[in-house]
């Protein structure tokens, strides 16, 4: 007898083949959590004040990253997409806000781990008279359809010690809530010390506000909040004072000196000998007031409060009869 096993065997074989090849549509890829980074939690800060606050409050329990610590200018920092990915991985991202660090406007950062420290006092932001980005102001068509010019904010909020204290408080709250494995008791204790130091600076600013300081010229548009905190009669030169060719020219500065009677020019760093000579010809004495977006030296160990105290001492010394050691 001839038997034809083919159809039945084919059915069984086909089913087995299906089971072996087609059934398992899963990749077998384990679904696990993202790999945990080893070491202490990291905090990213986009400028020196926040970097200093995070280091002071975090102590050795956190690792703080900032462009300032890598010798980059916090003002001009433009991270690559790969650097933004590294920033995304931070446990906490501290941003200044108030239009400081324009790169943050177009960076994809995790909102739940990002704190914009100046947002708490948005109603106290000061408008900047200096436009850095004219390319944002344009209109669609000759009739001006769709004009979207907008105000620019002064960004050096930390030069007002009261606002710096609010920013430190926002950073402290974030560090207590968002850093896994870090003692909140330790952060709270160190934050209280920091607040006390910033409070002393605020008191000194209030003291300066009560003094009769002479009119002052600011060499760069960064001192708005300092002027507000200390009640300065500040006149903006926007002179780009230490560049080979002054931004607004000598004549405008000379006119400003004549108009205001100012004898002091706030400068962000010590002028070159040539510039010092030019200033003295104008009857101006440079007063070193650090903007502190970056530390004076990349590897400096002085904290923001120490350096800010030095700034305020410089201003206080301008008052008649005042001298600071």
């Amino acid at each position: 007898m001839t038997t034809n096993h083919a159809p039945l065997l084919g059915l069984v074989a086909g089913a087995l083949l299906l089971a072996a090849t087609g059934c398992d549509g899963t990749s077998g890829e384990p679904r696990g959590a993202a790999p945990e980074a080893s070491g202490p939690p990291t905090v990213f800060a986009d400028n020196f004040p926040l970097q200093s606050f995070a280091q002071v409050m975090g102590g050795t329990e956190v690792e703080v990253n900032s462009p300032c610590l890598e010798g980059e200018s916090a003002v001009d920092y433009r991270p690559t997409p790969e650097q933004i990915i590294e920033i995304q991985d931070a446990s906490l991202i501290l941003l200044n806000g108030a239009e400081f660090a324009n790169w943050t406007a177009n960076a994809s950062l995790p909102g739940s781990r990002t704190i914009i420290t100046a947002n708490a006092f948005r109603d106290q932001w000061l408008e900047s008279t200096h436009h850095h980005h004219h390319d944002h102001d344009h209109q669609h068509g000759p009739e001006g359809e769709g004009v979207h010019d907008h105000a620019h904010w002064a960004s050096h909020t930390w030069l007002d010690p009261n606002l710096a204290r609010e920013q430190a408080a926002a950073a402290a709250a974030g560090m207590q809530n968002r850093l896994p494995g870090v003692s909140t008791v330790g952060i709270r204790a160190r934050a209280e010390d920091l607040m006390a130091e910033l409070g002393a600076l605020a008191d000194q600013a209030a003291l300066i506000r009560g003094l009769e300081l002479p009119p002052i010229i600011g060499s760069e548009p960064v001192y708005e909040y300092l002027a507000s905190a200390c009640g300065l009669d500040l006149h903006e030169a926007d002179w780009h004072w230490n560049e080979p060719t002054p931004h607004d020219g000598m004549e405008s500065l000379r006119n400003l000196v004549l108009a205001t009677g100012a004898r002091h020019l706030l400068v962000p760093s010590a002028p070159t000998a040539e510039r010092l000579e030019v200033l003295r010809e104008l009857g101006l004495e440079p007063v070193l007031v650090m903007p502190l977006a970056n530390p004076p030296t990349p590897d400096g160990t002085e904290t923001f409060t120490t350096l800010m105290g030095r700034n305020l001492d410089q201003l206080q010394a301008l008052a008649p009869g005042q001298s600071v050691d």
Binding site: P81, I85, Q88, A107, S108
Partner: peptide, 8 residues
């Protein structure tokens, strides 16, 4: 890598 800026 993840997206870092608009357009990615």
């Amino acid at each position: 890598r993840s997206f870092a800026v608009p357009g990615e």
